[in-house]
C-alpha cells in the first residue's frame, strides 16, 4: 500500500464440508463477524429469485378467495437459475410492465376443473409455465432425477376442488429480492456459528472418577464429549455440537473443579449452514450472494460521491477504488 499505511486486508478462506442441492455446510475462516453476517444477510434478503407476483383470476369457484390463492401462488418456489441475468420489471425498458416480456417476466397458466366425486387437489404441477427453465421446484425435481420417488411427492397444494368447482387464472412471475417480500428469498435457513475451541484440563480431568466424568459429560445437552472406551479418558467428539450453553462449565464449578474445561469462540472462524428453498442450489446461493455483495461494494466504490468525497476519505477513498 502506498504511503506505507498498514492494510487490514484479509484473505478469507472457505472450506466446504458437505454439499447437496439444497444444503450446504462450509467453514469461513480468517475473516470477522461483519463479513460473515453480511454474507448471511445478503443470502436471505438480496439474492434474486423468481416468484409469482401478479395473478389475474378468470374463474374461481373454489372455497378460497382470490387473494388467498394469489398469496399461496406467490409462495411457491420457482426454479430461478435465470434470475441473476433477468431484469427487474421496474427497470425493464423492453416492456411497460404488463408481464409479456421475456426479459423480466414469465407467464403461468392454470386451468383446472373438478368433474369427479372425489376432491381434486390443485397443485403446483397444474401450473403451466411458458418458460421451461422456470418451473415450480417440485415439478423440476420430478423431471430431473429418475431416482426421485414420484409417489411420495404430491406437489405443492394450492387449493382443493369439489365437483363442479373451477379455477382458471393467469399468473406472472417476476424477479425480485427477499427484502421486498419473503417469497423472493431463496434461503430457507442461513445461519452460522463461531467455531468453538475446547481445551480440557487433562490433569484435573484425571482426578475425576469414571462416574464423575460420565455425569459431567451428560450435563451437556448436546453430545460434545465422550469417554474413550480404551483409555477411559474424556475426549472431545464433536466440538461443533457445543451450543455455548456453558452447562459443562457450570457443572464443573458445581463439582468443585472450576477450570476443568475452557471453551472459547474463535473470533475469526465461522461454520455456515445454508439451506435453500430449491429456487437455486445452495452452492449457487452462496456464489450469487458474494456476487451481489461485490456489486454493492462496486456501487459504493464507483459512485461519484466517493470520488467527490476524496478529501474526506483520503487514503480510504483511493483504497476503495482499488488504487
Amino acid at each position: 500500500m502506498e504511503g506505507g499505511v498498514a492494510t487490514n486486508q484479509r484473505f478469507p478462506k472457505i472450506k466446504i464440508r458437505e454439499i447437496k442441492d439444497d444444503y450446504l455446510k462450509f467453514e469461513l475462516r480468517e475473516t470477522d463477524a461483519s463479513m460473515a453476517n453480511a454474507l448471511r444477510r445478503v443470502m436471505i434478503a438480496e439474492v434474486p429469485t423468481i416468484a409469482i407476483d401478479l395473478v389475474e383470476i378468470e374463474v374461481n369457484s373454489s372455497v378460497l378467495n382470490d387473494e388467498f390463492i394469489s398469496h399461496r401462488l406467490g409462495l411457491i418456489p420457482l426454479t430461478s437459475d435465470r434470475a441473476m441475468g433477468m431484469r427487474f420489471s421496474r427497470d425493464c425498458d423492453a416492456c411497460d410492465g404488463d408481464g409479456q416480456c421475456e426479459h423480466c417476466s414469465v407467464e403461468f397458466h392454470l386451468d383446472v376443473r373438478c368433474d369427479q366425486d372425489q376432491t381434486l387437489d390443485v397443485t403446483s404441477a397444474d401450473l403451466m409455465s411458458t418458460d421451461p427453465s422456470v418451473l415450480p421446484v417440485d415439478v423440476a425435481a420430478k423431471s430431473n432425477s429418475s431416482a426421485y420417488d414420484a409417489s411420495e411427492n404430491r406437489g405443492i397444494i394450492i387449493v382443493k376442488l369439489r365437483r363442479g368447482q373451477e379455477l382458471r387464472l393467469r399468473a406472472i412471475a417476476r424477479k425480485g429480492i427477499g427484502k421486498d417480500h419473503a417469497k423472493w428469498s431463496p434461503a430457507a435457513t442461513v445461519t452460522f456459528m463461531y467455531e468453538p475451541e475446547i481445551r480440557i484440563n487433562e490433569e484435573m480431568m484425571e482426578s475425576l472418577s469414571i462416574d464423575e466424568k460420565r455425569s459431567w459429560i451428560e450435563s451437556s445437552p448436546t453430545k460434545v464429549f465422550d469417554i474413550d472406551p480404551n483409555t477411559q479418558q474424556v475426549v472431545v467428539t464433536d466440538p461443533e455440537a457445543y451450543t455455548y450453553d456453558e452447562e459443562v462449565i457450570k457443572k464443573a464449578e458445581a463439582m468443585g473443579k472450576p477450570g476443568l474445561v475452557e471453551i472459547e469462540a474463535k473470533e475469526d472462524s465461522f461454520i455456515f449452514t445454508v439451506e435453500s428453498t430449491g429456487a437455486i442450489k445452495a452452492s449457487k446461493l452462496v456464489v450469487n450472494a458474494i456476487e451481489v455483495l461485490k456489486q454493492k461494494l462496486d456501487a459504493v466504490r464507483l459512485s461519484d460521491d466517493t470520488v467527490e468525497a476524496d478529501d474526506q476519505f483520503g487514503e480510504l477513498g483511493v483504497h476503495m477504488r482499488g488504487g
Binding site: R40, R41, I44, A45, G178, K179, A182, S185, T189, V190, T191, F192, M193, T243, T273, E275
Partner: peptide, 12 residues
C-alpha cells in the same frame, strides 16, 4: 423488522 435484522440461533 425484516428477517435479516432479526436475531437468529445457530440452528437457524
Amino acid at each position: 423488522i425484516s428477517q435479516e435484522d432479526f436475531p437468529f440461533s445457530e440452528r437457524g
